[in-house]
Computed example of a mutant assay.
Amino acid sequence: MDTRLAAHSTSIGAFNISADPLIDTDVLGKLFSKPTVSLPSWIPQTALSAAWKLHLVPASPELFDMFLRLPVMDITRARDELGWTPQHSSTDAVEDFLRGLHNATGGNTPPLQSHIPGGRLHEVGTGAGQRP
C-alpha cells in the first residue's frame, strides 16, 4: 500500500489491505489446473499431524487449523477513505509465490534459503525446520 495515502489522510486507525478475488478452493483449482475435491477437514489434518510427528513436513497441524480460520478482509474503508485500490490481484500474488517455489528462488535468511547444505532430506533426519 502506498503509505502516503494514509499519512496524508485525516483517518485514524488500521486499514485492511487485500486484493480480489478471494482465494478459495475454486481459485486454487484454476491456478493449479486441477479439479478440487471437498473433504472433511479432519482427513488432511490427520495426515498432516502424522507427517509432522514423523518430521516429514515443516508445517504443524496447528498451522493448518489457523489456515482454515483465516479471516476475509473487508477493504471498503481503505477504498472509501483513502481512495486505495490494489495494483495486483490476489491470483497474481499466488502465481508469483508459486513461480518462486518452482524456480527455487530464495532469500538471504535461513527459512528462505533456496539451497540447504545437505539438502532438504537432511531436515527429515534432524527434524523438519531445524537448522543443519
Score class of each variant (00 low, 15 high):
Ser11Gly: 01
Thr126Gly: 08
Asn108Thr: 14
Ala50Cys: 06
Lys34Ser: 15
Leu98Met: 14
Ala128Trp: 11
Ser38Ile: 02
Pro35Thr: 13
Pro111Asp: 11
Ala7Met: 09
Asp20Leu: 08
Met1Gly: 01
Leu82Ser: 02
Ile17Ala: 12
Thr105Ala: 14
Leu68Lys: 14
Thr85Ile: 03
Ser41Asn: 12
Val37Leu: 14
His8Leu: 14
Ala19Pro: 06
Asp26Ala: 13
Asn103Phe: 11
Thr46Cys: 08
Arg77Ile: 10
Lys53Ile: 12
Ala59Met: 13
Gln113Gly: 04
Leu28Ala: 12
Gly119His: 09
Gln87Glu: 13
Thr10Phe: 00
His88Gly: 00
Thr91Trp: 04
Ser114Asp: 12
Arg120Phe: 13
Asp65Pro: 02
Thr109Leu: 13
Ala14Leu: 12
Gly106Ile: 07
Gln113Tyr: 12
Pro35Leu: 02
Gly13Tyr: 00
Pro58Ala: 14
Val27Phe: 11
Thr85Asp: 01
Gln113Ile: 02
Thr85Asn: 10
Leu82Asn: 06
Ile75Phe: 11
Asp20Glu: 13
Leu121Lys: 10
Lys34Gln: 15
Thr3Phe: 00
Ala51His: 03
Ser114Ile: 07
Ala93Trp: 04
Lys30Arg: 15
Pro58Cys: 09
Thr91Tyr: 09
Leu28Ile: 14
Lys34Tyr: 03
His88Arg: 12
Leu63Glu: 11
Pro71Arg: 14
Ala7Leu: 13
Ser38His: 08
Ala59Asn: 10
Phe32Glu: 01
Leu48Arg: 05
Ser49Leu: 05
Lys34Met: 15
Gly119Asn: 07
Gly127Met: 08
Phe15Ser: 04
Asp20Ser: 05
Asn108Ala: 14
Arg69Cys: 07
Thr76Leu: 07
Trp42His: 12
Asn103Tyr: 02
Val72Phe: 00
Leu98Asp: 04
Thr105Glu: 15
Thr85Val: 08
Leu56Thr: 05
His122Pro: 00
Ser11Arg: 01
Thr25Leu: 06
Asn108Pro: 15
Thr91Ser: 12
Gly118Met: 11
Leu82Cys: 05
Gly129His: 02
Asp74Val: 10
Pro110Ala: 15
Ser90Pro: 12
Arg79Met: 05
Met73Lys: 12
Leu31Lys: 05
Gly129Ala: 07
Leu112Glu: 03
Asp92Phe: 05
Leu101Met: 15
Ile17Arg: 08
Leu101Glu: 09
Ile116Trp: 14
Thr25Tyr: 01
Phe32Val: 01
Ala128Tyr: 13
Arg69Phe: 01
Leu101Cys: 14
